[in-house]
Design a protein around this nucleic acid. Structure first.
Lengths: 152, 152
DNA sequence: TTGGCAAATAGGAGCAGCTACTATATAGTA
DNA sequence: TACTATATAGTAGCTGCTCCTATTTGCCAA
């Protein structure tokens, strides 16, 4: 298996940035150069960077930016759906005995995790090249969005 | 949508505990009352508890247990597949612009996140009761297991 | 059953990463 | 251009996990 390609060309970077700017305005957020820089660095990489890594990159453009700003920006971006926290990273670990079949919906605003069970999701077929290379212990469908309580 | 039911009866608790005990022995792990208590508390709940929450519960049985033991136990359980981390990692958050279609495989040992792209996973149908109640922004298939480098 | 030892535990210290706070600066608007 | 609400930089503090050490305990062998 090879890594998927995610190199972004100038044209796509520009169009996504334009989408981002209008999306910010619509959400009542100010469009600051720091926000754009963080967003663009995130677009340019394929490696699920941490706030720290992004901070290092953005710092080359804005030497005075603080790590806190990067963190706050990332939280803001994930609240408007312009960025996502890769599942299973950050915050306190949450455990599960893993016995019962169920899937998770996670609200990106309140971070609530809501269980649901949709039978077809239990029988998802894993591609052979994954099974050949890795020992699969768990597979699940993971849905993110905004829950009923937050969407008002 | 109602929460799925996960209340466990005494008989099931007992049989799962027996499985756990033999599973520990096979893995060369000592069967300590603390381990059993943590595992059973995890079986009894439906709420994806954090280490802290489990610690509070187990403490009612073993007042002298330490949070560190609960944490270590959970790591151990997840290494033998008796528990799973459903959310969070305790490490730094990892971000993704969420634009390109891809799925993640996460190694539970080295925590590496490996991207892959399996076209059928892009077209997963979300059940209507999810779409009706929540605003879905992202859906993905998430696979966990042991990667080629760690499985030696 | 008992003794010995490797493994596990309790408790505390330490560390990483996120979050809250305050003064200053800046984007958006009239 | 001036005003105001929002964002930023810098720092301090908090949370949650991990490391360390001394002590205890499960498990095997005699």
């Amino acid at each position: 298996m090879k890594n998927i390609e995610n190199e972004i060309d100038g044209k796509e970077l520009k169009s996504k940035t334009e989408w981002f700017v209008t999306h910010c305005r619509r959400a009542g957020l100010k469009v600051t150069p720091q926000r754009i820089a963080v967003y663009q660095e995130l677009l340019k990489t394929n490696e699920h960077p941490s706030a720290e890594i992004l901070y290092q990159k953005v710092k080359q453009i804005f030497p005075s930016i603080s790590l806190d700003t990067v963190n706050r920006t990332l939280v803001t971006l994930s609240e408007i759906g312009a960025a996502f926290v890769v599942e299973g990273s950050g915050d306190a670990k949450r455990y599960d005995a893993g016995s019962d079949k169920h899937q998770h919906f996670k609200c990106i605003k309140c971070r609530r995790i809501i269980d649901f069970h949709h039978k077809p999701f239990d029988d998802i077929k894993i591609p052979a090249y994954i099974n050949d290379k890795f020992k699969v212990l768990r597979k699940t469908v993971y849905i993110e969005g905004i829950c009923d309580l937050c969407d008002k």
